[in-house]
Every structure is written in C-alpha cells, then in structure tokens.
Simulated assay, not measured.
Amino acid sequence: MEENNMKNFANDFENIVAEVKKQIVGQDEIIQNVLIGIIAGGNILMEGAPGLGKTVLVKTFSKVLDLPFSRIQFTPDLMPTDIVGAEIVRKDKDQLSFQFEKGPIFTSLLLADEINRATPKTQSALLEAMQERTVTVGKNTYILEEPFFVLATQNPLEMEGTYPLPEAQLDRFLFKLKVVLPQKDALFHMIDISTGEKSLEIKKIATKEDLLEMKNTAKKVPIAANIKNKAIDILMSTHPDQTHIDLVKEYVQCGTSPRGMISMISAAKVKALSEGRYHVSLEDLYSVVLPCLRHRMFLNFKAMADKVSTDEILIEIIKKVK
C-alpha cells in the first residue's frame, strides 16, 4: 500500500473519532472500538445501564458517517414483521395482489435499542441479516445494500424485563463493548453540552463510499504467520478440552467459535491502520481479544457462584499465550 493511502486512513479515522467525541465525552475507547467494528464490517453490541449515552452514540455515528439510519425500540410485544416487514394485500380495481412492505431493517445503520427486552423469537429475526446481509420473507430473498451493520444496545441481564440473547445471535456480533460511568471531569463537561445555550452541531466527516473504501483497504492488510498462530492459540485456549489453563478448565462450559478468531484478525487489521501502520502487531491482536471473545465464551454454574467473569479468564489466557 502507498504511504499516502495509509496516512489517509489514519487521518480519516482520527477525524471521525474527533467529531463523535464532540457529542460523546468520557468514552474515548468505546468510540474507537465502535469505529473499528464498523470498518471491520461487523455488528456491535453495547452493554450498560440506562442513561450512559449508548443510543446517542449510535445516532452521532449515523450523522458523522452520513449513513441511512433506522431505529427499532425492542419491547416484549415487538414482532418479527415489525423488523423485516411483511407482505400486505393490495386491491387494484377488482384485482387482489400481494406486495412486500419493507421494514426498518432495510437500511445501512440499524440501531437495535435495548435488544434484550424483546423475546427470543423476535431477536432471531435479525440473525439472517446480521450474518448473510439478506432478508427472507416467504419465498423471496432480499439483499441488503452495503454497508449494513447492527449497532445494538442492551441493559445488564440482572435488570427487570430482560431476556438473554441466544448464543447463535451473540456469535454474530463482532464486538461486545461494556459502557461504564464516565469520570468526574467528563461528567462536568457533559453538563455543559447537555444544558448549554448553544446547540451542538455535528458535521458529516465521511460518506458511505469513504466507509466502503476504508473497509476494502483494511481487508488488504497482510497478516504474518506468527499473528495467525497466536490467534489460533487464543481460540483453542478458550476450550476446556484443548488447554491446560486451570481457570478455563474449571469455569468454562463452552469455548469460542472460529468466527471469534476471524473477528480478532479483522479488528486487528483496522487497529493497525488506525495507528498509521500497514502491519499487524501482536499488541494489536491482544487489544481486541476482550471485545471479540467476551460474549462468545460461556461459563458454567461454578463460575457464577464464584463470581468469575469472562474478562478475567480472557486476561489469563492472554498472559499464558504471550
């Protein structure tokens, strides 16, 4: 790759992040990871208590990237047809015909707000679109335009009115990001943004075409054999029958899928380019392990009783693999 292209990627990445940070303060790492996930072509799940700005973050990205945007507020009575659309009967004179009315899923950036407040049947309506970028209704299959990705928010499962997402759906998210309360100085700045007299103007920094070009650029980044081997070692270390790590053997019920390994490689490529490098380092790989794998590894009841988290186990895996 030419040096200019590499600089352009890093500059565009930095400009997009800087514009989003005008609206969202105190969440710099989350903003960067969301953009990494978008460029890597994946879906992103953000978990956090209500009121931490998850929905505002997604809306801000839609403005900065100038993407077609739809929002679905997930509730217990939401139906699959409310997401994908439905065939309706139309009468023209004496003739009756079926016509497909597209749902909000036909967009580029889909905000699935509080996704774990809907029933599993409704959540499953997203599965085909999230993985294959297609929607099947009846006998017809519709192709979603690129780029398409789902940015979903969810409340912690211990809160009332939430349903755990199916494992198959969790595996279709490239990242799971944990949104926490910002620091005091960020909260101070948040007051000025939210209650100030001047309205904040968010500018368009990139277009759909720019985003697709960045995505294609990231795909072309070469990966050294030792990086691939480390990604495989990390994947295998999450499986109790494939590792000697005590924490994994004691607390993990099911390890991560190969899709998790592919997610790590894709995200590490974008991470390297965002820092102006056309090679992926081991640190790039290690930096994306937690967001890529924390939702793909399932713990047993002993882990719940001992209050052991997937992040603790993944940090131990990284130490052993290093």
Rank of each mutant, 00 (worst) to 15 (best):
E2P: 07
N5L: 12
M6F: 01
N8A: 10
N15M: 14
V17A: 12
V25G: 04
E29K: 15
I31S: 05
N33F: 09
I36S: 04
I38G: 03
I44E: 10
L45P: 05
M46T: 08
E47G: 02
E47L: 05
G48E: 06
A49M: 12
L57P: 03
T60S: 13
K63F: 06
V64K: 05
D66T: 11
S70H: 09
R71G: 05
Q73C: 10
Q73N: 13
F74A: 09
T75Y: 05
P76W: 09
I83H: 01
V84G: 01
V89R: 07
V89P: 00
D92G: 00
K93C: 04
S97G: 05
S97E: 12
F98N: 00
F98S: 09
F98K: 02
Q99N: 14
Q99E: 15
E101M: 11
K102H: 11
L110I: 06
E114L: 11
N116I: 03
L126C: 04
M130Y: 08
E132P: 01
K139D: 15
K139R: 13
T141F: 06
I143K: 13
I143G: 00
L144R: 05
E145T: 11
P147T: 01
E158G: 01
M159F: 14
E160D: 14
G161T: 07
Y163C: 02
A168M: 09
D171R: 03
D171A: 06
R172Y: 05
L181V: 06
P182S: 08
Q183A: 13
H189A: 14
H189Q: 14
H189G: 07
D192H: 14
I193N: 15
E197Y: 10
K198Y: 01
S199E: 15
E201V: 15
I205H: 07
E209R: 08
L211H: 07
L211E: 06
E213L: 13
N216Y: 11
A218M: 06
K219F: 10
K219H: 11
P222I: 07
A225L: 12
A225Y: 09
A225C: 01
I227N: 05
D233E: 14
M236Q: 12
T238Q: 10
T238E: 09
P240R: 10
T243L: 08
D246F: 06
V248S: 07
K249Y: 10
K249T: 04
V252T: 08
T256E: 02
G260T: 09
M261H: 03
M261F: 03
M261W: 03
I262K: 14
M264R: 04
I265D: 05
A268T: 11
K269H: 10
A272C: 08
A272R: 03
L273A: 09
G276N: 06
V280D: 03
V280A: 09
L285C: 02
L285I: 04
S287V: 06
S287C: 09
V288F: 02
L290G: 00
L290V: 12
L290Q: 12
R294P: 00
R296C: 04
M297C: 04
F298G: 06
N300D: 07
F301C: 08
A303V: 01
A305D: 11
A305W: 00
D306V: 08
K307W: 00
T310Q: 05
K319H: 13
